[in-house]
Simulated assay, not measured.
Amino acid sequence: LHKGVLTASDKNTVRSIRFLDPCLFSYEQPTYPPYPTTSATYLLVEYSDGVQNLFTTCDGSQQIPRCISEEPENAGDIQTLLQVIPNLPELMIYVKKNGNMYMKDIITGADVCQIVLPPTHQIQTPWSPMFAFGNEGNTLYIKGEGTEVDNAGTVSDISGIFMFDLRSYHVLDTYRIRKHMKKDLSVFTTQEQRINALLQERIQQQALRTFRLQKRWGQLKSEMNIIQQANKMSLKPGSPRKP
């Protein structure tokens, strides 16, 4: 990764920093040398005032971040949790301070859908809600808590685990059908790794080298036949001769 000092904010503190999946970054890797010389991805920075910015790891310090979440006017709209959905690297689930849970597009910052519990329950706490993904990110489990009053007027606490089948959310279909090429966020930093990669490429090219030589010899034979036929034609009586 290129080294650089990123200017985050001069008035707020950074609350969290996370590297996103490199497959989201449309950066063409060089085809030669046969080992990765650089890798790039997005860096999601979250601030104490609720602002979220996207940086890149390839432009050094001279870059303007992309803001995907402005400072909310209402303190209850501050996003308190961010987690990428398994197998859907473009989507992230988050919880607002008021307890509402949403899914949003990481690159654009736009909300995609809201996860709603029954009216009798709410998320345990917006700062550390209890939830988990299952079935390769297709199922979401959330623990909800609430209170109920019986006929005698006694109030008691209740809780339950709620399951959401995310495959039934058709708004997510456009994200599921997208194919992302897996990219490793790594580079070969030692001389031994680079030499081994070059030797492996050289060995793989040996079989192609024999084929190319045979093809070239065949072309030379064809070219020689054409030259010989041209010479014979020039020696025939009545054939035009070059001055």
Score class of each variant (00 low, 15 high):
L1P: 08
G4K: 11
L6D: 04
S9L: 02
V14P: 13
F19C: 05
L20D: 02
L20E: 06
P22C: 05
L24K: 01
Y32H: 14
P33A: 07
T37E: 13
A40F: 03
T41Q: 10
T41I: 03
L44G: 01
V45E: 02
N53H: 14
L54A: 10
T57W: 04
Q62H: 15
P65Q: 06
S69W: 03
S69G: 04
E70K: 03
E73C: 06
A75V: 07
G76A: 11
G76P: 00
L82N: 06
V84G: 00
V95R: 09
K96G: 12
K96Q: 14
M101G: 11
M103N: 01
K104Q: 12
I107N: 00
T108E: 01
G109E: 01
A110Q: 10
C113I: 03
V116D: 06
V116T: 12
T120W: 02
T120M: 07
Q124T: 15
F133N: 01
T139K: 07
L140H: 05
Y141V: 09
K143G: 04
E145M: 10
T147A: 05
D150R: 13
A152Y: 13
T154D: 06
S159W: 03
G160I: 04
F162W: 06
S168N: 13
V171S: 11
L172R: 04
Y175M: 09
Y175Q: 02
K179L: 01
V187T: 15
F188W: 04
T189C: 12
Q191K: 06
Q191R: 09
Q193P: 11
R194H: 06
L199S: 10
L199K: 12
Q200L: 04
E201S: 14
I203G: 02
I203A: 14
Q204G: 13
L208G: 13
T210E: 11
L213W: 08
Q214S: 11
Q219K: 15
S222T: 14
M224C: 12
Q228P: 05
Q229K: 08
A230E: 11
N231L: 15
K232V: 05
L235Q: 15
P237I: 06
G238Q: 14
R241D: 01
K242A: 07
K242L: 10
P243L: 11
